[in-house]
Amino acid sequence: MLTSFIRLLLVFTISANVFSQENTITSDSIEYKQKYGLRVGMDIYKLVNSSLNNNYNGIELNADYRLNNKLYIAAEIGFSENNVIEEYLDFTSKGNYLKAGIDYNMYNNWLSMQNMIFSGIRIGYSKFDQNINGYTIYDTNNQTWGQSFINIPIKNTNLSSLWIELILGVKAELFNNLFLGFNLEVKKMINSEIKNNIQNLYVPGFNKTHEGSSFGVGFGYKISYLIPIRKK
């Protein structure tokens, strides 16, 4: 958590530097045009996490397309395989997800700059498997017989979940057409299909679920490249 917080600070620092050029400007009569196009990218945190963490494998690609000065249609597609080992439970959640929606740029750029402080909304859908690999029977009276670990897997396949997601984030243009961004996500589960009365503990794209609450959280640390199509 601390490392992700440091990363977050890093992005804000970078973004703040870029944005702080704002006050050096006086207006002039030259008309600057904004670039419109398709921006494609990927989540670099998930990429790094996949290579460092033996229990996680995931990738997320993202794209947005600018509709007008403020609005972008945006989507993410991803895959994740996550093995979680709790005190009494060892499970793996594996599957694909798609999120689609819009981003709204709240930041007023000057000249031809294209930085964003944005809020977004997404509908998310995931199709996944959740396998219980093994578990220790929870028994507070186990002094007599001892703990017993069961390693017969319980496979729940073809599960699906649907959720809605609010996003807040920044995107800063580091170099020409290359963007670095950070965003936070708050999710609310709409529908999560379960099997064998076992809660869906981790949903790809939604992340960890919480008992007695339909909310979830997440973040993204994204690099993306704008393919300019037109200027206006």
């Binding site: 009494y88 439970l89 220790t136 929870y138 503990l201």
Partner: peptide, 9 residues
Amino acid sequence: FVSRACGFI
């Protein structure tokens, strides 16, 4: 199934 933290009884 009981919960994430307790697992199964």
